[in-house]
Simulated assay, not measured.
Amino acid sequence: MKIWFDLSNSPHINMFHDLIKELEGEGHDIIITCRPLANTIDLLQQKNLSFTVIGEHYGKNLYKKIFGYPIRVFQLWMFLKNHRLDLAVSQSSFHSPLVARLLGIPSIYTNDNEHAMGNIPSFIFATQVLIPENLSVEKILKKGSSKIKTKQYPGVKEGIYLWRKSQQVQKKRKELVNDPIKIFVRPEPLTAQYYKGGLNFMDEALIELQNNYAITILPRDNTQKTHYKQSKFSKIIVVEKPLEFDYIAENCTVFIGAGGSMTREIALLGIPTISVYQDELLDVDEYILKKGLMKHEPQLTASKIISFMESISNKNADFELMEKGKEAYYFIKNQILKYNNQ
C-alpha cells in the first residue's frame, strides 16, 4: 500500500514516527510531505525521515491563512497526482483530506483540538475522523463531521507514541535525582490561528529566576529565538536546534509549557509540569488536569514557580494512559490497514 502522511507541524513527527517505520518495515511505501512551520523540518531531519517540503506557512493572520489554504492544496495535488496513492493519513493537517478527495483516495484525519477553524473542511472531506476518547463527539459533529465516520481512540494523542519509552525515561530520571534543578520552557504557539493568549508573558518571571536556576528555552521559531537572545535573558540557554525529546524528559526537573502537545507529553510521563496556556483549554487538557498530572497557572510568577518546585515530587508515568496509548497505536494502525487492497 502507498500511504501519504502530511506532517504539517512539529508534534506530528513524534506521533507518527514509529508507525511510519513499522509500516515501512512491513513493505508499505510511505510518502511524507511537510511545510516550514515551527521545528517540523529540523525534527524530520533529526529522525532521519525522507520528506518533501510543499508550500509554506502563512502566519497567524486569518486572511493570509484563508488565501494560502487553496495554494498549498493545489501544490500538494500537483506533487502527488502521479504517485498512485492508496491512502492519506494526517493529524491536524487541514489540507490533507481535501487533497485526498481531489486525488480520489480515502483519508484518515486525526485531531484533538476542537477550537481550530481549519478542522471544518477537514472533517467534511475526510473519509474517517479519529479523535481521543475524552474529546466530545458532539463538538466534532458541529464542525462538519458525522457520527458514521467519527471514531474515538483510547486515551490521549500523546499516549500513542509515549507508551514505548515511558519506562526508559523514568529509569534515567531516577539516576539524576541529585542533579541541579533544570527548568525547560516551551513558549506560546504564536502563529496558531486558534491561540488568542498573550505573547512573551513569562519574561518577568524568567528574568527573576535565571540567576538561581538553569533555564532552557525551547523556541518554536526564529522570532522566539531572537526574543530570548536579548541581553536581559543572558543566563538563559536558548537552543538552536530542537533537542531530542528523550533528553528533555530525562533531564527536566520542571517543565513550563505555554502550548499543548509537548506540555501534555511531559505531564503524561509523570514529570512536574505547569501549563501556562492563556487561551481556552482543550477537552484533553481539562482531562489531564483532572487526573492531577499537571498544574494550570496562566498568570505565572517567579514566586509561584518556586513554590511549585518546593512541593513537587517525581511521579511515575500514568500507567493507565500508557496502556491506552498502546491500544490507540494499534487501533490507528488497524484503521490504516483496513484500506489495504481495497
Results as ranks from 00 to 15, higher is better:
1 M>F: 02
2 K>M: 01
3 I>F: 03
4 W>G: 03
10 S>H: 12
14 N>Y: 11
18 D>M: 07
20 I>K: 10
25 G>H: 12
27 G>Y: 05
33 T>E: 04
36 P>F: 00
41 I>C: 05
45 Q>E: 14
46 Q>I: 02
50 S>Y: 07
51 F>L: 12
53 V>R: 14
53 V>F: 03
56 E>S: 12
57 H>C: 00
61 N>E: 08
62 L>H: 05
65 K>M: 04
66 I>A: 13
67 F>S: 09
67 F>A: 08
68 G>V: 06
72 R>N: 14
78 M>P: 00
80 L>A: 08
83 H>G: 00
86 D>S: 13
87 L>N: 09
91 Q>Y: 13
92 S>E: 09
93 S>A: 13
94 F>P: 02
106 P>T: 06
107 S>Q: 06
108 I>G: 05
109 Y>Q: 05
110 T>D: 00
115 H>C: 01
118 G>F: 03
119 N>A: 07
119 N>W: 07
120 I>H: 10
120 I>E: 03
121 P>C: 05
126 A>K: 08
130 L>A: 08
134 N>K: 14
135 L>Y: 02
135 L>N: 12
138 E>A: 08
139 K>A: 02
144 G>Y: 01
145 S>W: 00
146 S>R: 13
152 Q>D: 00
153 Y>R: 01
157 K>W: 00
159 G>T: 04
163 W>M: 06
166 S>M: 05
168 Q>P: 00
173 R>Y: 03
178 N>M: 07
179 D>P: 01
179 D>Q: 15
180 P>I: 04
182 K>F: 01
182 K>P: 01
182 K>M: 02
183 I>C: 04
186 R>D: 00
189 P>F: 08
189 P>H: 11
190 L>E: 12
197 G>D: 07
199 L>K: 13
200 N>P: 05
204 E>D: 15
204 E>G: 13
206 L>E: 08
208 E>W: 01
209 L>K: 13
210 Q>R: 14
213 Y>N: 10
219 P>V: 09
222 N>D: 12
223 T>D: 05
227 H>I: 05
228 Y>I: 06
230 Q>G: 12
230 Q>A: 11
231 S>W: 00
232 K>R: 15
232 K>E: 08
233 F>H: 08
234 S>A: 10
237 I>T: 14
238 V>S: 04
239 V>F: 02
240 E>D: 15
244 E>R: 14
245 F>H: 09
247 Y>R: 11
247 Y>S: 06
248 I>F: 03
248 I>V: 15
250 E>P: 10
256 I>Q: 09
258 A>F: 03
261 S>P: 05
263 T>R: 10
265 E>D: 12
267 A>T: 07
268 L>F: 01
273 T>F: 04
273 T>C: 09
275 S>D: 03
276 V>G: 12
276 V>N: 09
280 E>M: 07
281 L>F: 07
282 L>F: 15
285 D>Q: 15
287 Y>F: 14
292 G>K: 13
295 K>C: 06
296 H>N: 13
299 Q>S: 13
299 Q>D: 15
302 A>S: 15
309 M>D: 01
310 E>Q: 15
320 E>Y: 07
327 E>W: 01
333 K>W: 05
335 Q>H: 14
339 Y>Q: 02
